[in-house]
């Protein structure tokens, strides 16, 4: 590899390297220079042997929206856990589910990943499939009551996307939130 290509590659890998070193130090449980150096060595070997495509490009952290996202997320996680836990012990078996497609507005691998992870952990939704090109996310909704409930859940997913993008997205990503989605939504069958 030529040195000219090494520099941008290293910059892309830097967040990953930092994360790996952090994990290494946390695993040892104590801070020391030996841990830092050995962690750095392990991280370099790992990223050299198992290279990953750069995904972090263009992302930035905004502290206040991040707090808002994390706060919402924790509350949602508690509510959804309680809901699903109640569903498991609730007598009766008349449960209706739904499979819906939601048109997202984000066009970034990293943000879509965060949205998908977060959506899987909040009330009643689970990601089944993602059409990356069309930015459509297929979701399974647990225990829906009626069609209005389905619409409410879909709006909740878009609100989640909104919070994620405002916390992590670049300026372009945030601007994309306010535009109308350019692909028509799939019609219900």
């Amino acid at each position: 590899m030529s040195p000219g290509r090494l520099a941008p590659r290293l910059r892309h890998q830097l967040p990953l390297l930092a994360w790996l070193v952090l994990v290494w130090i946390l695993l040892w449980g104590t801070w020391s220079w030996a841990n830092l150096l050995s962690g750095l060595a392990v991280a370099l070997v790992a990223t050299a042997l198992l290279p990953l495509p750069p995904v972090v490009g263009g992302a930035r952290l905004r502290p206040l929206p991040l707090v808002r996202f994390v706060g919402h997320f924790l509350v949602d996680l508690v509510i959804s856990s309680a809901e699903v836990a109640w569903e498991t012990v609730r007598p009766g078996r008349d449960r209706r589910a739904a499979i819906v497609a939601v048109q997202l507005r984000t066009d970034s691998d990293l943000l879509l990943t965060v949205v998908a992870e977060a959506v899987s952990l909040v009330p009643g939704s689970l990601v089944i499939d993602l059409d990356r090109d069309a930015r459509v996310m297929a979701l399974h909704l647990l225990s829906v009551r009626d069609l209005a409930d389905v619409d409410r859940r879909k709006a909740a997913v878009l609100a989640m996307e909104d919070r994620v993008v405002r916390a992590f997205g670049s300026t372009d990503d945030v601007a994309a939130l306010d535009r109308e989605p350019d692909q028509p939504e799939r019609t219900a069958s």
């Binding site: 209706r96 819906v100 499939d129 829906v144 069609l147």
Partner: peptide, 14 residues
Amino acid sequence: DLLLVDELGGEPLT
């Protein structure tokens, strides 16, 4: 039979 809505019609998205 338990689905209230199925916007994918049983087909995979891609």
